[in-house]
Write a protein that binds this DNA or RNA. Structure first.
Lengths: 334, 334
DNA sequence: CTGAAAGCGCTAACAC
DNA sequence: GTGTTAGCGCTTTCAG
């Protein structure tokens, strides 16, 4: 049988409200009484009912991560997995729970973010995997629901964002590529619908400007973060120009970089000698690719951790930290 | 403002209890009345409060996945990520939530599984990442909490398991290796504490027996599923014997297989010519390793999906399917 | 077929 | 400091 607050009250010889106050750390409770209640509670193995608590408070301390793009049958990407890990490392030992929901664009249309939170008794959410144009991004602006976007910029009174400073990071890797690689560059670009693409492109432009690389020495291949597309596009490019044009491939994602490496090798060139390749993200897979190519590690677990921290900050203290950048790091190649 | 059942009742001109019955699909409600209520509910955008529902029912339909081994700071493994995906694909559009908790061995000692479920209002859990000897495995036996273990065999009235038939699968890959590879075998083994190891070893033995491979033609390297250990061990082995002994490496995990491939190449031998290597798991990474080595795909997303389905079956219908094997598939190499 | 009313476990006024 | 009491939104007897 479930031990209720009433049982504790009876056994401790006090009223339910006293128990409630004692257990919730109010200071208008006699210390002896509190101790007696605490002891009795743990002796009886009392566990407060979250449901009753939520119902009574109407303010729920449950938080959730809403993940967009989980629907497909493809394996879970490392990014989401690591965000989850990060969230989890925050709540570790904190007597909190974190729920997980997949939100398709479909769901976003059917159920407003506010309704979603009400329905599931959520006091705040972490949003990830959202794409520019997704409905919830707009809704966040006018809602008073504590939200934290991971890798997506959110606006609103109660909305914060955890991002990589993509402009800075991409500038860094671009500079690195220019220094270590060849002067004729190829930017292997992601799709413009993604917010990060815009920033990474900005970083790229700043770097080439700083290094005075002229437009003639830059080719841009739009590969939309699609590995296969990157493969075919780069293959065609190298097939056409060989080493006569761009020889430094600066890729907006590690996966596209890996595809690029594959092309190079299949065409019997050598990475590091004939061509230079950089990635971006810092995925695990890169450790298994030879040669090791330079990349930017986004520190995703940290992103998850910080996201959770910010969210709790907003929920509890009502303060909104706005945008927080998580430090990235440049991983050297060989 | 939150729309409650009371609002719907008032607007529809009926009582709360009628609304409740109508919405919950009881058949003692006049069809016209039901329709009116349904319409009004959706017009008002009524969303039942889970908390109130749980409180009233005392039976909570919340389920959670309890993940062991999430604590470390290492990136989330593909396995867990894909299980999550599978779970999610089941609840997609089903108006359910799934909570996620990390459970260290520490937590398992402090808080019994039963208390855990009560505390978080869980009516059932998916358990994954557990190791032989973990406390919750024992507890499941004597509890009446609906549980489903993914890749861990659970016993108990309300406990089911979703597994790969490791005996069969490992027999399959072993036979394949014997046929395509060389007759002298090396088993790159995982740690015995893992349940799967025992089964995989059984499968191995059945296969070698069937093919009448004698003990002298088999070497066993205990590498505990540790990639580094596999690397050093195999390297030493090949360094010592070259091609004079085992030339077919049958690995209990893809990661160990990849380490093996690395050794072979670094010692200037060729996989597929000098040595033959097989893996087990079907991880993504394998797609990026050349040459493509044969492996067993465990279909982890399906495992997650089925796990969730079983759990709901146990919770709702009280029937326990026991152990369910998810079909695996042999992935050919090149 | 429908409504009234009790109660799930908890919190928060408001008394004392 | 502590107790009394009125809900939170919902389900479920029990009457009618």
């Amino acid at each position: 049988m479930l031990i209720s607050i009433r049982d504790v009250a009876k056994e401790a010889g006090v009223s339910v409200s006293t128990v409630s106050r004692a257990l919730n750390g109010y200071d208008d409770v006699n210390e002896d009484t509190r101790k007696r209640i605490m002891d009795m509670a743990s002796k009886l193995g009392y566990r407060p009912s979250q449901s009753a608590r939520n119902l009574s408070l109407k303010k729920k301390e449950n938080v959730a991560i809403l993940i967009s793009g989980l629907g497909s049958n493809s394996p879970m990407d490392e990014f989401t997995g690591n965000v989850l890990k990060g969230l989890n490392s925050y709540i570790q030992g904190k007597d909190m729970m974190i729920a997980m929901y997949g939100i398709s664009s479909e769901i976003q249309r059917q159920l407003s973010l506010k309704d979603f939170c009400e329905q599931y008794s959520l006091s705040g959410v972490i949003l990830t995997g959202l794409k520019l144009g997704d409905k919830y991004i707009e809704e966040v602006k006018n809602n008073e629901i504590p939200c934290v976007g991971i890798d997506i910029r959110l606006e609103g009174n109660m909305a914060a964002s955890v991002l990589t400073d993509d402009v800075k990071a991409f500038k860094e890797i671009t500079l690195y590529a220019i220094e270590k690689g060849y002067k004729k560059l190829v930017l292997v670009k992601g799709k413009d619908e993604a917010e990060v693409t815009i920033d990474r492109y900005k970083g790229f432009k700043t770097a080439v400007k700083e290094k005075s690389i002229s437009k003639d020495n830059i080719d841009i291949l739009d590969c939309k973060y699609d590995e296969e597309l990157a493969y075919t596009t780069v293959r065609e490019y190298i097939g056409k120009y060989g080493k006569s044009r761009g020889r430094t491939f600066i890729c907006m994602s590690d996966l596209m970089a890996i595809a690029t490496v594959r092309c190079i090798e299949e065409l019997s060139y050598r990475v590091g000698e004939d061509f230079f390749v950089t990635g971006f993200d810092g995925i695990q897979l890169l450790n298994y690719i030879k040669p090791k190519i330079p990349t930017i590690d986004q520190n995703i677990i940290k992103k998850g951790y910080e996201g959770m921290r910010l969210l709790m900050d907003i929920i509890k203290n009502g303060k909104n930290p706005g945008t927080v950048y998580i430090e990235h790091s440049l991983i050297n190649g060989e």
